[in-house]
């Protein structure tokens, strides 16, 4: 949360805007006119620490910690409503992705359950070439919701009993090819 005291310039990070600006999808954020179309259209903005519009003003003002610590980025469901409506055509969803990656990179993931889900998703895809929903949920529950595990049972059972939850993963045949591609990306470095 914003500190309830006068904010001194020295506490702000004025390079933050440039840092975000250079991220893919970040180019247009300097042009934001703070009209609020994004927040007014977002299905989840009401539960966010800061609605998307405010995230942009925080970035511009240099409130680095507030942005990366906020739950905003993890509440984005990638519905792209903001992106198609933004009068400045800012790719807001892409900026949210970029902020998610930056937050993960800087370890600002404490208590962020979405990070656990995403990271396990990546692991599974790298392992099998495909997602395995059963294993994904099991890993996620163990790592993030162990004490709430029981709440996943009814829906899990429903899926299983209807034959919608396969027990075994499907591994693609040419997993080596996929891994070679991923290894090359690793060498090239992220964008």
């Amino acid at each position: 949360m914003l500190k309830k005291e006068i904010v001194y310039e020295s506490t702000l990070d004025h390079d933050f805007l440039e840092e975000i600006y250079s991220l893919p999808g970040g180019h247009e954020i300097k042009k934001c006119i703070q009209c609020g179309t994004c927040s007014g259209s977002c299905p989840t903005s009401h539960v966010m620490d800061h609605a998307p519009r405010k995230i942009f003003s925080l970035i511009r003002a240099g409130f680095r910690e507030e942005v990366l610590d906020s739950n905003t980025i993890w509440f984005c469901s990638s519905c792209y409503t903001c992106s198609v409506r933004c009068p400045k055509e800012i790719k807001i969803t892409d900026v949210m992705y970029a902020l998610k990656r930056l937050a993960i990179k800087e370890g600002k993931t404490k208590g962020k359950k979405a990070v656990v889900l995403s990271k396990n998703f990546v692991k599974l895809v790298n392992k099998y070439g495909r997602n395995h929903e059963t294993e994904l949920m099991t890993r996620y529950i163990i790592q993030a919701e162990l004490f709430n595990a029981f709440k996943f049972i009814p829906q899990g059972w429903k899926l299983f009993s209807k034959g919608r939850l396969p027990l075994f993963p499907h591994k693609i045949k040419n997993i080596d090819q996929l891994r070679k591609i991923l290894k090359k990306v690793d060498e090239l470095g992220e964008i």
Binding site: G36, T37, C38, G40, C42, S45, H46
Partner: peptide
């Protein structure tokens, strides 16, 4: 009408 009241910071 769904709108963000940007000065208040509420949808």
């Amino acid at each position: 009408v769904r709108v963000e009241d940007t000065l208040v910071g509420a949808v």
